[in-house]
Design a protein around this nucleic acid. Structure first.
Lengths: 318, 318
DNA sequence: GGGAAGTAGGCCAGATTCCGTCCCACATCT
DNA sequence: AGATGTGGGACGGAATCTGGCCTACTTCCC
């Protein structure tokens, strides 16, 4: 089987319609018998090509044990890149790293003519809720992810907690996502020690090309190490509220829920901005009461006042 | 070149690190000379394999003119599926259809052991803002997208505008996304006419297996046809507000912006729920005034009242 | 500067594989 | 019953792949 025919065949079979062997033969420019042999070989390779018999039959690729190579057209590639970018901004727990890995893998081979489309579409997406803190740049994320995979030293500008800017030279070790924040655990070359960097404070990261030798991370598990030191970097609020509703799925996703009685429950949640907490509580569409922290209660008053001003003269009750 | 070696080689080269030829030879179980030839053939096929010369050199796949087949591991496939699912719930303008196409293509070949992981992760994501209306089910979306591509008749339950349920048999023609809503344009088999279905009102869609013959869509362009008849299906609100800030990028993404003076601008935006409008305005973090519609002003009062109740005793001014 | 390690590619002989063209069996829809 | 589809065996000639050997050139590190 010529190599290109295999890929063409796979891409045809991925279009989720049925292909009669004769049509495949015509498209591939080979005989029908050869198509049958190609299909057979694909099956031997583990790709689950299914065939329906009979007059209206044909071949199609169905779900199997392993992922076949995905053959995407331009639009689909752009859609995936944009989707993963937003996923990087609002990471889904448990697959943060895989999302960025996939994005880096895709961006590595994304044709340049598609890159600007991805960029502009990415910019056009409304970061839906307030999101409070600064948004992490998916481009920086993939640059760093590639550097980690490629074991290359990186250089970037960094704004520390106290506001001072500096230029860093770092051996990246791992990316860690907690909540909606991304961190880079790396070995700072100039300071000769392990440091944790908030990625939204990193500007202009670029690979230096210098190969780095693997180093033992400080405390074994990188994620645990970062989580330990995290709260010194980014203070978070811990909120306690009573909700006037029984626990539901969207509520459980917000934090720890304790049922109080049939109609109320208590929710412990944490977030790094008051806006984030306020919005998610308001989005539940139910009555609630804030117990902790006092800053959140004050913030709700601020928001309520702004809403009242925005609404103008009170509308008739309805 | 054996077929499987081509794919293995491509997957290795996609890991965004450099591979010396000797290592590739070992992994692939062939001689170094053969690896060189394989690389050469990959280049002939159009895949941009780049090599760095010298002692620490190696091969890697870089961006080229065409998308190479993406070879994903399990985690990456799950990450992409989840990312695209959320993208389907909050479609990005201009690539709505491509997103769903990519998702359908991926789901078609997604191993079953990964499906439940996708499902549970998908459920775990908080639909960040209120989102008001019912969420569209990405599973239904991909089922319908596959049926469109596959030209198969579908059967599903539908709840009409007036609340009555019915069972439909439809020849699907196209999916159309407007705003955050998905619609299916199809030919209703029993009523023998074109109909538009809101996908969030479709339950249990499944392909019947019956092949359908292509039919001319009613008014040429499907998207235009749907947009025409759309407002009878889903009433939307048109809001006019004055924002106390100069136009910024996130504001422009919400709707049409007219600058008033250096410090204020007027925004025309539309949305299908009051919650959606309110949240995005509040998320801007600026003062604003609502001119239209009166329902929105009333809704802001409602939200403000709930916030005030939730905050309890007024906090000291800060 | 020199050595080591890497890519790039020509040449050749032998082994392997591929391809098309015959077959025929069986399933399915009209 | 007929048309149209998949599935697969046999065979011979053609094409291709592979490994080994060679040389030329580039780059990094000691």
């Amino acid at each position: 089987m010529t190599d290109s025919r295999l890929l063409t065949l796979l891409s045809l079979l991925q279009t989720s319609r049925e292909w009669p062997g004769s049509e495949l033969a015509e498209r591939l420019g080979v005989s029908r018998r050869t198509v049958r042999r190609d299909i057979e070989r694909l099956r031997d390779l583990g790709y689950p090509v299914e065939a329906t018999m009979g007059a209206t039959g044909g071949y199609r690729l169905v779900a199997g044990a392993a992922m076949p190579p995905l053959l995407l057209d331009d639009e689909e590639a752009v859609a995936i890149a944009v989707g993963l970018s937003t996923a990087a901004r609002n990471p889904v727990q448990g697959i943060e790293e895989a999302s960025v890995r996939a994005l880096a893998k895709l961006e590595q081979v994304l044709p340049s003519r598609l890159r600007h489309r991805v960029r502009s579409l990415r910019d056009a997406t409304v970061p839906l809720p307030a999101e409070g803190g600064p948004q992490v740049d998916p481009g920086a994320l993939t640059t760093l992810a590639a550097a980690v995979a490629n074991r290359e030293r990186v250089r970037f500008g960094y704004r520390a907690n106290d506001g001072t800017d500096s230029e860093r030279l770092v051996d990246p070790h791992r990316l860690v996502a907690t909540g909606r924040r991304w961190y880079l655990l790396g070995h700072d070359h100039d300071r000769d020690d392990w440091r944790i960097f908030r990625i939204d404070r990193i500007t202009g990261p670029r690979a230096t090309g210098a190969r780095i030798t693997p180093r033992e991370p400080p405390d074994g598990d990188a994620a645990a190490y970062v989580a330990d030191r995290l709260y010194t970097l980014a203070p978070t609020y811990e909120a306690v509220v009573t909700l006037h509703t029984a626990p539901t799925e969207p509520i459980r996703a917000l934090g720890e829920v304790t049922p109080l009685d049939g109609e109320r429950c208590r929710l412990h949640m944490r977030g790094d901005t008051l806006d984030w907490l306020a919005f998610h509580l308001l989005a539940l569409g139910r009555e609630f009461e804030v117990h902790e922290p006092p800053e959140l209660a004050a913030h709700l008053h601020t928001l309520a006042a702004r809403l009242t001003r925005a609404a103008g003269t009170p509308a008739p009750q309805g």
